[in-house]
Design a protein around this nucleic acid. Structure first.
Lengths: 224, 224, 224, 224
DNA sequence: CATGAATGAGTCTTCATTCAT
DNA sequence: CATGAATGAAGACTCATTCAT
């Protein structure tokens, strides 16, 4: 992204430098995520971040323009993960649009679960983002729900799902995924991630699957 | 000293003092809410708050122990509003549990809409709360969903709703209400609050209402 | 200048507050001048300034918007002094334009001598000024030479001085005054302020006084 | 190691090395001068300097001990230029001491004009110099005025100039030359360099040339 | 010789909080 | 009760300098 590599020619040092830059970025992004999990983004000082990442403060500024850009990078990192994992899950779900929706939702929830704080950073720290960054994030967020919307549309087109507002349903699915992080303090004492995914899937698909197709998706609609 | 009577039960001076205190609290809480809507809680300095409320900085500390307590108070204020408005809506909904659920959800959404930022402060600023405050807030949040859970239970008991996980469904309803604030930048370009409430109600009740009772609730299940 | 007083009404506290604000400004300006004499402006940290002035760092920001504004204020303070002292000297010099020029130059040199570093701050630190501040300073500098230019013009009009480029001569006089500060390390080992003023006056007036009026100004043209 | 010969007197490798060193120094000095013209010395970071000079930061430290030494080198470079150009101008002026003074002043002004910022660096950044460096600079400055003082003395000895304080007059001439840089923002809107030189020459020589020799120097005393 | 990644002390600035009036 | 001047710790960020390659 904002790597200091210059890409002027392709001498041997070039690749090594790029590799180091990538490693540093990851190191910093991970340290940032770790600390934020504990303290929230605002609660993490650049000093503390440097300590956690075992680098000097100054080095952070070589890789990220400032605290705001770092925040942006962390959020983008999660959205990138989602943009990779959700389509993978959809692809692995076979050709059935309903299965695809369920798989996409499960994948979304799993990423959120893995990076609980980072996943909901947008809600918490959007104030700190530049308006430019905000626009970028919003675009990425919308883009990341595209696989969901597409599967929903296919489901309706195939007569498997009722006529629905795909935008709203996609929004609900994402919200429910985020809900796992947002209300984790409450939910974790009631159920685990698998149950949460299963029950929410059942709940939403319950009113979305064409009534006469419901038998076909019993495994989704009536999780044991 | 300057007060005419010296705390002898409920003399007039005492009442006047209490009234002023209440007025000041409201003044400060409103100023805080106003500013936070624009800048987020962290972005509001005590100095700016004092200016907005047209009091001195020092005075804030007479009414609230500090910035954290003020945050707590603002959140509590919203939760209090919900704890008042939701039961009112339930009571006004007649005796039908399904209508009650719908009414409770609508009321919840309306409060969220009125105080968009303050309503989701818990998500954004919970880090700043003392653990004590956090416990209090969580308890209040759970309590505020009680009317929803109770109505859901009544619905199931009356055979109007399927057997459901009331905790989870209540959580979903609250999440959807908050979703209106959290994703307002996205939703507002698609629908208005009334449509949002109607469609979400339909969506969830779609899988909750006992199939053979669905005709009875057509107005909720098939908005417009 | 940027005093925090609000001037809303004229209650008793108002005057006291304004007085304190003025006292604080002076205290800070003096501390700044003292330190700058030793370290140059860039070399003075806000921390050190606070220590010298025996106030807290934060307080400086109540009276001056930042380090740049403080620099501006120090420069303006010197220019204000000049704008007061030079006209006073001119007024005290009687009605003779040549005497007025000499008096103005002497006064200018005396102020420079009293505030050696601060007087030439413009040359040294103009980079740190905002362009707005720069414009202000330049205007004040030009204005402060007005008495000189006016006296020169009067001298020419009265047939006491030759036809001259008043702008350039005024610039030379100011430059010579500043020269006392700029090259003090060199000059102080050759002569004292009085001699410097006398000799420079003689030098410049030597080619400015109308030849046939020279006898009249022998005391200026042939010091000692 | 990589050099063919090992420092045995003045073999070809040695010369090449010295040439490269000289070339590097010049490259760096020029880059420094260029940047300083825009940003002032303090405003130029070693990183920016490296970029401008198209070398690495580390390399600067091979040629100059640090930022302070670089500053010293830049100043010395200007003073060297003056020490070359002024005597050249004097030599080219023929044998007349008055012409020599005028020529020296013109040359001084021309160098100042060519390197406007660097020429007055002593005034601006002397604080950053080591006391050792300061001493060196002062000595060089005084030395650079020697041709002026010598010409002035010759003028007096030859009965062409009045009895004068050569130190002070030399100081004035240098100050006027520097004045062109120091007050360039003001002067440039009034006159160009040629006019400035001519008028200042006339002004000072006006009181320095022996009255009865004035006709002889009319071209200097009454510039068109 | 040359590079440029890495360091970390030091800078300006903000702001929650206190307290004399 | 109310004020707002004063405090000072803590934060983000810069940049001269070093050193492994």
């Amino acid at each position: 992204m904002s790597s200091p590599a210059r890409s002027r020619g392709n001498d041997p040092g070039e690749a090594a430098r790029a590799a180091r830059a990538a490693w540093r970025s990851r190191q910093l992004l991970d340290a940032a995520a770790t600390l934020m999990e504990r303290e929230g983004f605002q609660g993490v000082s650049m000093q503390a971040l440097a300590e956690e990442a075992e680098v000097s403060v100054g080095l952070i500024y070589r890789y990220f323009g400032g605290k705001d850009e770092l925040l942006l990078a962390v959020i983008v990192d999660v959205l990138d993960t989602i943009s990779t994992r959700v389509p993978e899950a959809v692809a692995a779900a076979g050709d059935d649009p309903v299965e695809e929706v369920a798989a996409a939702f499960r994948a979304y929830c799993e990423v959120v679960d893995e990076r609980r704080h980072a996943a909901v950073l947008t809600y918490r720290e959007s104030r700190a983002l530049s308006s430019q960054g905000r626009v970028k994030i919003k675009a990425m967020e919308v883009a990341s729900t595209e696989p969901l919307r597409a599967a929903l549309h296919r489901g309706t087109a195939a007569g498997l799902l009722v006529d629905l507002d795909a935008d709203l349903v996609a929004h609900d699915l994402v919200l429910m995924a985020h809900g796992w992080a947002l209300k984790h303090w409450y939910l974790e004492q009631k159920l685990d991630l698998g149950e949460y995914v299963a029950k929410q899937t059942a709940l939403l698909l319950g009113s979305l699957v064409e009534p006469r197709r419901k038998r076909q998706y019993a495994h989704l609609l009536h999780p044991h």
